[in-house]
C-alpha cells in the first residue's frame, strides 16, 4: 500500500474510534429529545462526570471494572437528579426555556467538577495492555478497540431494550405520541426521568472509555458534548441509527481534516460539517422520519 493510502487508512481508523464516542453522546441527545423534546446541553457534563468519577473511584482503590460500573451508575443517577431538580419544576415552561435551563445545568455541573477535581488532567488506566492492532500498516491502540467494542455492545443492547422490552417500547411510545402514552397509563414524567438517566449513563460510558486515551479533565465535556450534538444533528436528532452515522461521519471527517489539512483545524471540522448541513440538508441525513 502507498504511504498516502496507509495514512488515510490510519486517519479513518482513528476517526472511527473517536466517532464511536461521538455516536454514544449523540444517542444521549436523541433519547432525551425523542421523549421530552428537549435538546440537553448538559450532555457533555455527563460525559465528563463519567470519566472523572471513574478516575476517582479507581484511585480510591476500587478495581477498574467496579470503578467503571459505579461511575456509570452514579452518572445515571446524576442525570435523574438533573431532571428532577432542573427540568421537572419547569415542565409547564416552553421547550426553549427548558433548553436554556440545560445550558445553566451544564455550567453548574462544570463548576462543581472544577471545585471537586481542579483543573488537572487525570489519567485512567487502559482497560487492557498489549500491542496495537495493525491493519495494513495502520494501527489501532488497544483502548481504541475497547471503544469500538463497547459502542457496538451498547448499540445491540439499546436495540434490544427499545424493541424487545415493554419499558423500552413505552419510551418509544412516549416519543411517537405523548397523548396516547398518557391515555394508556404511561407516566410521561417518569419516562422523562428514565430518558435523562439512560442518556446520562450512556454518556458516562463514552467519557469512561475515552479517558485512557485523552485523560479526564473537568472541562472535557464542553467539546465532546458539542461534537455529540453535531453528530446528533447530522443524523436528524430523532434516530439512533442517524446518531451513529452522524458520529462516525464527524469523527472520520475530523480525523481526516486534522491529518490532511492541519491538526489546528481539528475542532473546526465538526462545526463546518454542521454549517454545511444547515445549508444543504437542514433536516439531517436520516432526518425526520426514523425515530428511536
Amino acid at each position: 500500500m502507498t504511504l498516502l493510502g496507509s495514512q488515510i487508512l490510519q486517519y479513518v481508523l482513528s476517526g472511527i474510534v473517536v466517532g464511536g464516542i461521538y455516536a454514544l453522546i449523540a444517542i444521549g441527545f436523541v433519547v432525551i429529545f425523542n421523549v421530552t423534546g428537549i435538546i440537553n446541553f448538559a450532555q457533555g457534563e455527563f460525559v465528563m462526570f463519567g470519566g472523572m468519577l471513574a478516575v476517582s473511584l479507581n484511585q480510591a482503590g476500587f478495581p477498574l471494572g467496579g470503578a467503571l460500573l459505579a461511575a456509570t451508575l452514579l452518572t445515571a443517577l446524576l442525570g435523574a437528579l438533573v431532571e428532577r431538580a432542573a427540568i421537572k419544576p419547569a415542565k409547564t415552561a416552553s421547550i426553549s426555556t427548558q433548553i436554556i435551563i440545560t445550558i445553566g445545568a451544564s455550567i453548574a455541573l462544570r463548576g462543581i467538577a472544577l471545585m471537586i477535581w481542579g483543573t488537572d488532567p487525570y489519567p485512567l488506566p487502559s482497560f487492557s495492555d498489549g500491542p496495537p492492532l495493525v491493519v495494513a500498516e495502520a494501527a489501532v491502540v488497544q483502548q481504541g478497540l475497547w471503544v469500538i467494542g463497547v459502542t457496538l455492545l451498547l448499540l445491540v443492547g439499546l436495540h434490544a431494550f427499545f424493541h424487545r422490552t415493554l419499558l423500552g417500547k413505552a419510551l418509544r411510545a412516549c416519543a411517537y405520541n405523548s397523548v396516547g402514552a398518557l391515555l394508556n397509563g404511561i407516566s410521561v414524567s417518569r419516562m422523562s426521568l428514565l430518558s435523562f438517566s439512560l442518556s446520562a449513563g450512556l454518556s458516562a460510558v463514552a467519557g469512561i472509555v475515552i479517558s485512557p486515551i485523552t485523560y479526564a479533565t473537568y472541562d472535557m465535556g464542553s467539546m465532546l458534548g458539542l461534537k455529540g450534538f453535531v453528530a446528533a444533528m447530522v443524523g436528524g436528532l430523532t434516530s439512533i441509527q442517524g446518531a451513529v452515522v452522524g458520529g462516525l461521519l464527524v469523527g472520520i471527517l475530523e480525523s481526516l481534516g486534522a491529518g490532511v489539512v492541519s491538526s489546528g483545524y481539528k475542532d473546526a471540522v465538526a462545526f463546518l460539517v454542521l454549517l454545511a448541513l444547515f445549508f444543504l440538508k437542514p433536516e439531517g441525513i436520516l432526518g425526520g422520519k426514523a425515530k428511536a
Partner: peptide
C-alpha cells in the same frame, strides 16, 4: 379509558405492541 379523537396510536409500533402498551401499568 379514553379513546381520543384521532385515535393517538403508536404509529411505528406493531398492532400487538400497541395492545401490550394498553396494559402498561
Amino acid at each position: 379509558r379514553h379513546v381520543p379523537e384521532g385515535r393517538q396510536l403508536f404509529g411505528p409500533l406493531s398492532v400487538l405492541d400497541n395492545l401490550l402498551l394498553g396494559a402498561y401499568g
